[in-house]
Design a protein around this nucleic acid. Structure first.
Lengths: 131, 131
DNA sequence: CATTTACCTACTATGTCAATAGGCTAATTG
DNA sequence: CAATTAGCCTATTGACATAGTAGGTAAATG
């Protein structure tokens, strides 16, 4: 289940994409438009900055802008960055140790197939597709 | 992310499917074969019984059996039963109140499309496909 | 009637989610 | 250069879910 963090991050990115090319957008504006607590958005936006998806500038007239064009972002990288992983089961998440039952597990191929499908779906969807 | 409950449930169902047509299988056997705590499996198995996916019989020679043939179970119903929902975001889960932003949300169509894909994937996969 | 097996209620430790609180720092404008 | 505007940082919290444990009761068989 994708948490608010990933969902809010995507909404922030869409909000920025809709205003792409104009001045920087203050977080306060985004928070009001999206009806999300500005304080909570700060946490999410920090992740997006660290991942080099957006860029922030301080001072009067400051705010956030996208680093690239909307069509150059996949939804997958946005969600993966903020959620930590896109893996549908623990066995396939990056942090998991290799399961000793992997060789005999009858369900692993299913999870692998599902994982591939999810990955393809989100990485083929571009931010510009949501506008 | 699908939790251990759903994943273990599927492994229990596969274990039973592999022995379909024979005597009832005691939980102790399944727990040993699958290397899962029997105590924890009791909780999961209870869900499966309540959902009429398997049937238990007490006493010596007792255990669990499938209610139908392996090809008559979809993976989707097993996971949905034990996880509570298959929805990838809160907005689409059965318990969620209708979002007031649904009409303007630019991300909702994406979640709907994803939800449909996930649903189709798991409901088209049969238990017999995992043997 | 003793053994085996399922079934039931309750408890708990740990961790994650979804924020909130409150201040600090850095840049721009007048 | 002071005021404004906005980003940046650390810590804390309530609620809930996860992943189990513990210990007992009921039913069937031989």
């Amino acid at each position: 289940m994708i948490s608010t963090k990933g969902r809010y991050a995507l909404r922030v990115m869409v909000d920025l994409a809709e205003r792409y090319g104009n001045d920087a957008i203050p977080l306060k504006e985004i928070a009001e438009r999206q009806e999300i607590s500005k304080k909570y958005l700060e946490i999410i936006v920090k992740d997006l900055v660290r991942g080099k998806l957006i860029k922030g500038s301080s001072g009067k007239g400051g705010g956030y802008v996208l680093c690239r064009k909307p069509e150059e972002y996949s939804v997958g990288e946005i969600i993966e960055l903020t959620e930590g992983t896109l893996a549908p089961v623990y066995c396939l998440s990056s942090g998991a140790e290799v399961c000793p039952r992997a060789g005999v597990c009858k369900t692993l191929p299913l999870w692998n197939e599902f994982d591939r499908m999810v990955h393809d779906f989100f990485y083929n969807k571009k931010l510009s597709d949501l506008l």
